[in-house]
Design a protein around this nucleic acid. Structure first.
Lengths: 208, 208, 208, 208
DNA sequence: AATGAATGAGTGTTCATTCAT
DNA sequence: TATGAATGAACACTCATTCAT
């Protein structure tokens, strides 16, 4: 109504109650997924939100769409953290480490979240794919800085590090919550278990 | 009834039936999990095996018990591989690397297998817990050798490496199948992304 | 607003918009019913037409109303065919046969169309009832000619023949599409399966 | 155990309560379909029968399977009627007529029944397909008799007549219940509307 | 010891219709 | 007048687990 940009077509006001509904559903979903993990019942969310299943479905046609919306709402946090890291880091290696830490926290928002995120990495159709792609790009930026600086291995790719943060989140699952692991997945991801590099001609990967 | 071997007591029917049933169920389960992942329907397995659901349940009271039996059947392979590594390795680092590779393959036997394995790591009640524990112990042995040799970081624990192999298997999931990752999870696990060690007083872990 | 034609009263917006909307909905509905049969989703039609569900509902309060409008748009064709038959037929029997053929084609416009048409035959409230009634009347006219000519049985009524064409369309459903039926429903409707007339005092109808 | 034929495997007694359950479900389904037509809710049937949805589904995996079972229960009636017709008819034409009348009644057992029956005529997978096929065969037999006798047109096939009875049932749908049609679909099927045969070289079918 | 019937809540999804805006 | 969000019951179908036989 006021200084609306030209990008939106007629830009009908999204009908205040619809927006309120949507927001409420998101609140409830956040709580429900927090309690029951990302596989929690969608029907239960609708019920808890006091809306019909159809309403939930209209706003978020798939579980992935709902998750994507939930994560979008957290995008601000992650962006803020990224900026804080950019301005506050003394070297690129620490910046990259900080960013990976942020990603790991982000992927740990709900129990089981890493699973659909990983799936989205190879399913372009998923609404989560875009989400992932954006963060992979950011990871690539931090990584490039570190590689320029000489503090990150040249052959590593942002995509790999992103996947590693998902795996780290996954490993953290409720199972390990109680165990304080002095050398965690993330440690390994940074420095590995070996004290020396493998011979150049040997296969480097356990996976082959 | 007719040509009964002498080994069985005077029991009416040799328990060979039950044993054959059990073995057949395992064969079928292996195939079914191979096709549908570890969340495949137990009912379907019973049906494919031509037994009642109750029979399946009697032999393997939980999905975990069935998985544990399936993995037990593969224990021989892994033991053989362990021995081959022990006798064939020139240094402890390569031996450890080889063992982790073997574990990663083992945990990739079925789609979704890493999930219950991770869960079993902190649930002592699970029939899979024992399975895991055995391999963790072996990992500890290989690791201790490497640490003695000075080729593995002192603060790393076998438990952590075992979990890392599960995470690596998990990351391999269909998602990455097509992507040839020049620096895979396993690479990262061995050497990390950093070229240098972090300062001694800095927090080393992304997870904290 | 700008070049408003003189025909419309001082109404704010020419109802041309509404008319165009209506026409567009009809176009889309024709295509959608063509693809998904007459039970296709009305919501989907509204979406494909780019209008709200309420708008569709305003123009066509029921599925029957929408179908009736769709068929009304085809009325011209059928009228033209009727005239062609009237002028081009040498005898009343062939004219009637031609008309029934036209009706059968008409009732086969969409998958499942015969169903609501039959329902409309006894539900005067339906918007399709009028449509049907008109064609029944025409059928009566052709039939009367044939009866006068002596080439149609006296006790047959237009209503019955109309229903028979619906049944023929119904029988044509995908089921028989592949089967070339040497003696089709329509053949039976014209000449029956019997070579001779049943005795006058015998019950003639299978239905009683 | 006793003189059990070799066809059934171990032929475990179907567990009396299961059989009772099955029968009860059939009773309830019959009533429910009678009230709501063949599209009535399966869930509702389960609820009315006091069993879980899974139980219904175990006995009758699809709606068609349930209908087939329902019709199988009526097979006795139809067989009895067939025998009565065979022994009681003076000529093959009347026998065929009687059989078609029986079929029409049979296909009118529930509202909407003709629809899945027609579908089954071209879908071999359907459990109803067998049902239909059996009655088509019987129709062929009656028809052959009539054709030998010279009282049925040579080019007609049992399959066509069976389909015509379905169409007749369909036309009878609630819609026409009130209307007493002096020349019904069935009349038309027997003798057609024409008093004379179409010219031999002319296309005989309205459908072409 | 084995069977397989029963359970029944749960899954995601659809849709005609109403109504707040 | 038109919109499209909301409704919410209904749909077919699944499955791990229990238990009567």
């Amino acid at each position: 109504m006021l200084t609306m940009s030209a990008t939106t077509p007629p830009a009908r006001r999204p009908r205040a109650d619809a927006q309120r509904n949507r927001d409420h559903i998101l609140d409830v979903a956040e709580q429900h997924f927090g309690e029951h993990g990302v596989t929690g019942s969608l029907d239960a969310i609708a019920k808890r939100a006091g809306v019909g299943a159809g309403t939930l479905y209209r706003h978020f046609p798939t579980r992935e769409a709902l998750l994507a919306a939930l994560l979008a709402a957290r995008d601000d946090e992650l962006v803020a953290r990224r900026e804080a890291i950019r301005t506050g880091s003394t070297d690129a290696a620490e910046a990259l480490d900080g960013w990976l830490r942020a990603l790991t926290d982000w992927a740990s928002a709900f129990d089981g979240l890493p699973e659909p995120l990983r799936a989205a990495m190879s399913a372009e159709a998923s609404p989560l794919a875009l989400t992932c792609q954006g963060y992979i790009t950011t990871t690539d930026e931090f990584l490039a800085d570190a590689q320029r600086e000489g503090s990150a291995r040249a052959e590593v790719r942002g995509r790999d590090l992103f996947l590693a943060t998902l795996a780290t989140s996954w490993a953290r699952g409720a199972a390990m919550a109680d165990e304080s692991s002095p050398a965690s997945m993330a440690d390994l991801t940074r420095t590995g278990w070996a004290t020396t590099q493998p011979p150049c001609d040997a296969p480097r990967s356990v996976l082959g």
